[in-house]
Design a binder for these strands. Sequence first.
DNA 1: TGAGACATGTAATCGGTTACATGATTCC
DNA 2: GGAATCATGTAACCGATTACATGTCTCA
Lengths: 185, 185
Amino acid sequence: MDTRIIPSTLSLAILGLVSRQPMTGYDLRKVFTTTPMGHFSTSPGAIYPALRRMEQAGLVTGTVEKRDTLRPRQTYTITKKGLEVLKERLLLPISRDDIVLRMDELTLRFAFMGGVLGKREMLQYLKQLTLRINDYIPILLDNLEAQRNIEGSTGAYALEHGIARYDATVMWARRVIRNLEGGSR
Amino acid sequence: MDTRIIPSTLSLAILGLVSRQPMTGYDLRKVFTTTPMGHFSTSPGAIYPALRRMEQAGLVTGTVEKRDTLRPRQTYTITKKGLEVLKERLLLPISRDDIVLRMDELTLRFAFMGGVLGKREMLQYLKQLTLRINDYIPILLDNLEAQRNIEGSTGAYALEHGIARYDATVMWARRVIRNLEGGSR
DNA sequence: TGAGACATGTAATCGGTTACATGATTCC
DNA sequence: GGAATCATGTAACCGATTACATGTCTCA
């Protein structure tokens, strides 16, 4: 199936939110502006076009509320196909590029898993995440050595920051794995 | 001065790199593809236009190497104005939005400070960073409470991930502050 | 002299931001 | 009935991605 149906992180956020409960464009905007989840875009010029694209792709259906007025309210519901596409997108293997450039999206993906995937898939995702990060950290450490040799540079510090954040992710993932396997929560 | 002279993180990365040493477009591309620093864009379709925009804005000057051939090589050097704009951009106050949406850029900013700013400004930046994050974490904790009440949701875990990463940043910043104040390195 | 790396660029397309326009509802 | 908020949308612009095109240098 074509993964380009959900091109951006914003579309993923929208689809994930709509998968939980039917929402209007304004509802989505409110979530994006008032909660940390989904600080991806707050502009109507991004949300409404994205909703229409997704409706055209058959991922959501809009039901008109005030049919007769000039300003109809549209409530969007996820379709069966939309749910499938969401699941597929959440289950996509984690790549090096995801680790390097798209940690936000990886977090978002996990945030939406609770509703649509099982414990088994969630565990697999977290283990994959730790593996990919553990593959990448040695490369960062190599570069760190090189950076340290540059006099008066703060590049090494910046790299250490990145590494510290990846470490935090790994520790978080391990904790969640323990929780899920232990069955608590 | 107009901050829109450096519109994107990519432009900032380019200007910062060129501030260290003169570089061609290809040199920049190599840095972006082979080092963790600057995994912002590797496509020539972004780098070359950005360089030309910055040259037009007077931030860098390109000196042609092989003037007579059909394929002249351009080496770009930062100008006095470019250095001023870079400094200004690095010194910009840190906003809530920076914390929420642009941690990568904040890290990049610190990475370039070594070459152009003094210890004093660097310390101020790091202190500002910890302050802004400490302002934001209580909001995340509030949302965490709300998320926990949603049955079977992984949203709470995702939020904890975000918080853990911010904690890592704060701890890193405190360590660097200690190092800089202690004068080591 | 041919392969492959080095090096620079363009065009189509696409999605997001900014700024603006406008209608509907609520509440004083 | 006027203000504020709720709610939906459009248009201009902008920069990044993708894919393609092309020239240059090095070395076996």
